[in-house]
Design a protein around this nucleic acid. Sequence first.
DNA 1: GCCAACGTTGGC
DNA 2: GCCAACGTTGGC
Length: 157
Amino acid sequence: MPKRYWLLKSEPESCSIQDLARAKQQTTCWDGVRNYQARNFMRVMKLGEQAFYYHSNVAPPCIVGIVEIVKEAYPDHTQFDPKDKHYDPKSKMNSPTWEMVDVKLVEIFPRPLALEELREVAALEGMELLRRGSRLSVQPVSPEQWKTVVRLAKRKQ
DNA sequence: GCCAACGTTGGC
DNA sequence: GCCAACGTTGGC
């Protein structure tokens, strides 16, 4: 399996990339995903693969940095916690429905790349994030798209 | 706060 | 299996 690239959405209100930078080991578990497609992508993530960190539900929505998979898919404990927002009463202990991965901060971009700006990049046409109505919170990014975004992030202003 | 675009649920 | 109703996501 060739190395793949990903994009993870997070509402900064719950966990911004700055929060991640302050976290123990700069690592967090990606819990709370309750969408099958997103879960299936997490299941195939491999150690060392990288993902863009995206801030959603804020103005402006933007890609803010890079994280790395430091633990492959394992059961998301919040599905069994009745007090948790993401509690899933239908999920069984012996066959958990939902999984998560651990991610570690790699870098925060010198400047955030706003969605609006990304929409204007021809090479990113077709990127899942830019698709109208796209809501997928865990999504694949092609190597070409990855390279393009990284290049944009490093470009001097 | 609005609402389009989804995904899920459940009656039939 | 269809599809209307509902809940959620997330840009704007």
